[in-house]
Design a binder for these strands. Sequence first.
DNA 1: CGATTGTCTACTAAACTGATAGAGATATAA
DNA 2: TTATATCTCTATCAGTTTAGTAGACAATCG
Lengths: 148, 148
Amino acid sequence: MLSQKTRYTIRALQHLADRWRQGPVRLDAIAEAQNIPRKFLTVILSEMVREGLVISHRGREGGYELALDPVDVRYGDIIRLTRGSLALVPCAARNAHEHCTNCLPEAECRLRGLMLTLRDEMAAMLDRMSLADPIEVEAPFAEEREPA
Amino acid sequence: MLSQKTRYTIRALQHLADRWRQGPVRLDAIAEAQNIPRKFLTVILSEMVREGLVISHRGREGGYELALDPVDVRYGDIIRLTRGSLALVPCAARNAHEHCTNCLPEAECRLRGLMLTLRDEMAAMLDRMSLADPIEVEAPFAEEREPA
DNA sequence: CGATTGTCTACTAAACTGATAGAGATATAA
DNA sequence: TTATATCTCTATCAGTTTAGTAGACAATCG
């Protein structure tokens, strides 16, 4: 699962991407439009500024804007940034590799083999899509109803 | 990330798959070979028995065996079972669907759109692979060394 | 019987997560 | 130069989840 924080981050960045080159967007505007707790969003956006993905302006008329063209911000990058890695298992991370605890030697671990392949497939897709892509949304699933 | 428990589960099932039709395998044998804490493994295997994936035999010469032909146990099933869902976000689960908290309406959420596509890709791969597949392992990555 | 092996429920310590508090820094403009 | 609007940073917190353990119990075999 992506953490709530990662999800907020992605939606905040999408919000900024949609307003690319339209001047700074205030934190409160993002929080309200995206339904993200205000205080939590300050933490998230400050982090994005530190990471260089977002530029901030203080004072009147201040706010946030994307530091890069949306087309250059790929979802894979965002997730790697907030989560450390795309992999579903530490030993399958290609960037932030770590050994798993209580595992087999990596050279023998089929779970690792499988998870590496999966990671690469996920990466291929997530690194193909950027904040500039119009993602088609899908209708919500029919609501499951409580058994009467 | 997959939880440690899910990883243990998968490796335990792989162990049983490798010994399919060779009689019951004792818990201690699995724990030792797969480097899984003994007591924790009891919890895991009992759960698998309850789910019907594994059959147990008590007493002398007892142990565990897979309840199905390994070819019929797909990785997607195992993960759905232990983790509830393959999706990276609750609203993108096709089986165990749940709304995300503090999100946009699902019909408008691009994060959901993206995560649904990703989920489907992951599912395609994980449901194609079964415990019977010989997964090619990959050499461990070169060790990063501490800066001197 | 008694040794062996699995089953079940409860419990716990540690880590993580989501969120908030509040003092501080900076920019603008009147 | 002061008032105000904004963002920034560090600390803290309560709740949940996770990994793992304890220990009494049940079944099977010889």
